[in-house]
Design a protein around this nucleic acid. Structure first.
Lengths: 182, 182, 182, 182
DNA sequence: CCTTAACCGAGACGGTACGTCACGTCTTAGT
DNA sequence: ACTAAGACGTGACGTACCGTCTCGGTTAAGG
């Protein structure tokens, strides 16, 4: 059900991805680095994308625990900080950014990406549930929209604009949502 | 200063990108499709990324005219619709999404991406200037943050989540910013 | 230890050499003609010269049997005839002349050439041994010098001067050595 | 009738030939080294071989003065020494060996080679004329055969066998012809 | 403990594309 | 009018990985 050196293979995969980007991630490189024959990798995963998807699923790198700080504002700020860390703090950022970038128009990775965001959102909902129970959020609010606004802004600012995030970026972003364009 | 068939080369480049994604975009393919020899392409652009960057700059595909509808709300909605169109309506979407995805960790394309967003933002600022003059927006508001929230949400929803956009997505997103989490 | 279609590769190599000379001998041409992929050839031989050297070693085209006609004079005449045939009679001549010409200042081929002449001389020595035993040749005579004079003359006359060999060239050349400049 | 920088072109041609062999001699290299445009070279000489042939003709590198030492034996020894020097003493040897090697199956260079040997023989004949007048050589002797034996031996020994020439090689070779296989 | 089926290593192979070099031709300007 | 500059098509180079295949050897689990 699993190759004997699966862990080494996954580790090599993520190391190569982090070190050389998606293009520099080659099956032959993974094979060499993990002390496994190329054939073995192809026996278990049909493509580079599938291998990476499996490695990402396995990796706890992308795990997160939804914050529970007592207020929606600070919970959201914590979530934004989490996204920012994921996209900017090595070594996780090297893996995450490369993987998300590569997922565009690569069905196998895109599926993993969707699952990743879906899982994540499932856990983020706890934050919104609590906020609603506390009366901080009207029932009509759309949690996924809020998360997409916040997380999307981090992606756009850091990856597409290539700009660093201010220390108060999270606070300002959350405020823009909760308080309007003060 | 420019190869004789530059236009054909750029057209072929974007066609291939749209049709087969960044990986399927090969210099040999571009050469064949544009009736030019491979060496000619390498004479002018040092890499696939540089060629694509040049083609993107040249292409008006990514042009935009900032809306001026009379109110900030409707202007922002129009901007969101524009981003949504760019990322979902073929054929522009095929080019834009592939190019943006490929830009991650490819310096030459990343530079083009940064320039693209910078140019775009320079024009979007007109919207915010007008809004401020009309008194729709406090002076302390951060236009780039607002644009990053809105555009980032479109990217995240469509590309990473792979979800379609509701007809009222633009209205709801703008409302989340302007009215708070109603 | 050897590529599966080694024989076809060698045959194609020599055919191309004979047909188009050393410059016209291309790895791609050999690959195509032998029904093998270019990379397979590079997997086994590091260069065109090495490939040709291997093909020449394998080929029996360059084989020779030292004559034993009963007298030194006729043996030497036969050897000269052999050299003349090697350098003038197609198809062997096309291969031999091209290969020897190409060996100049191409280390890998030069090594093969030296080996070729060394092997050849080892067999030619039998002729001189017999002659000495018969008393036709003083012990002080230098067989390699004699062979170099004779074979060198054939090369110079046919290849460098581009002249045909008279029917009695062998007889005259051997006579010049054995009888002096009568 | 002649390009303005003909001398520089010829010099660059021979330098490159000497330095990098015939394959390393490129028209582009000559153009660069001689401060001339590639087009100019092609205007005057149709090919690399033709250019080299012209350069060789021009060069006095290959000149020789027939010896006149008073006896056939010493004259021939001097001629052999001359050939040996031509094929072994840099820098002339680099040019001569490369050029002769390249002449094989390259018609334009082969023509130059034939002319070279014909010219040379025309001058060598003086040696044999004098010897005949002195009675050192029967009228029936074949001078070209003698020269081919001697010069061919030097070529074969040095270039094909890759062996150095003994100090007394010339004496021994001439003796083998004049005295028989003593 | 022994067998047997799953798993693996080794390595050859056809194939696509890479990025480079030099060829020899041709067009375009400038003097 | 001649020449320089230099863009170009062309062919081959040697390399990197791709994904496939065959073969023979290990390993480990269960009877």
């Amino acid at each position: 059900m699993a190759p004997r050196k699966e862990q080494q293979i996954f580790r090599a995969t993520l190391e190569l991805l982090a070190g050389k980007g998606y293009e520099g991630l080659t099956v032959e490189g993974v094979a060499e680095r993990s002390g496994v024959n190329k054939t073995t990798i192809y026996r278990w995963w049909p493509s580079k994308a599938a291998l990476l998807a499996a490695a990402l699923v396995e990796a706890d790198l992308l795990a997160m625990e939804p914050p529970d700080t007592g207020s929606l504002r600070t919970d959201l700020e914590a979530l934004v900080q989490g996204v920012a860390a994921l996209l900017t703090r090595p070594p996780a950022a090297d893996v995450a950014v490369a993987a998300l970038g590569a997922a565009v128009h690569r069905p196998e990775l895109a599926a993993a990406t969707r699952r990743f965001f879906a899982d994540r959102f499932a856990r983020e909902e706890a934050v919104f549930d609590r906020a609603r129970r506390r009366g901080e959020l009207p029932a009509t609010a759309d949690p996924m929209l809020i998360m997409d606004l916040l997380a999307g802004a981090v992606w756009l600012r850091t990856v597409f604009r290539g700009l660093p995030l201010d220390d108060d970026f999270a606070a300002k972003a959350v405020s823009a949502i909760l308080d309007g364009p003060s």
